[in-house]
Simulated assay, not measured.
Amino acid sequence: MNARTRWAGWACSTRIAVLLREDLESWQRLNVTAFLVSGLGTTLPEVIGAPYEDADDVAYLPMFRQPVLVFEGTKETLAAARTRALSRALPRAVFTSGLFGTGNDRDNRAAVRAVRTGDLDPVGLAVYGPRNAVDKVLKGARMHP
């Protein structure tokens, strides 16, 4: 069963997707994904479900109400996806290569702010929106293995 088949049962009209540059190390892929989706969850309350509780009444934080699909692609695929996300005005988060050299939130924002849009070197992009719009943004990307 592939990843697309696994999520076929989720009948969502919207999609949360992360696109990672294919040349990242494993630890970078995980780190970038976590950072990117945190931006969506904190800004778009409609993507968050209700809190969890186990049978012993122990409470847990809420999570996304739908799967997060993770894709990978070349540097060019990522650049094209970012351009398409911008042109469709989809909610998005970006992680640039410069963020690997910073150590805190203030420096992260400064590293992105210092570079013009067309000159950013994105290694990851998260988008949220209508399923068909997100699918068009991700054209040319493949599901993460």
Score class of each variant (00 low, 15 high):
R15D: 03
I16M: 08
I16N: 04
A17S: 04
L20K: 06
E22C: 05
E22T: 09
S26C: 07
S26K: 12
L30Y: 07
L30G: 15
N31W: 11
N31P: 06
V32T: 11
T33D: 12
A34E: 10
F35H: 14
L36W: 03
V37G: 10
S38N: 15
G39M: 05
G39V: 00
L40A: 13
T43K: 13
L44D: 03
P45Q: 10
V47P: 02
V47M: 11
P51A: 13
P51Q: 07
P51I: 07
A55C: 02
D56M: 07
D57T: 12
A59I: 09
Y60C: 01
Y60W: 06
P62H: 11
F64M: 09
R65E: 04
Q66K: 05
G73I: 02
G73P: 07
T74Q: 04
T74H: 06
T74S: 15
E76N: 06
A80Y: 11
A81E: 04
L86G: 06
A89W: 02
L90W: 00
L90K: 00
P91C: 01
R92A: 02
F95H: 03
T96R: 03
G98N: 03
L99W: 02
L99F: 10
L99V: 14
F100Q: 03
G101D: 11
G101N: 06
G103E: 11
R106G: 02
D107I: 11
N108M: 10
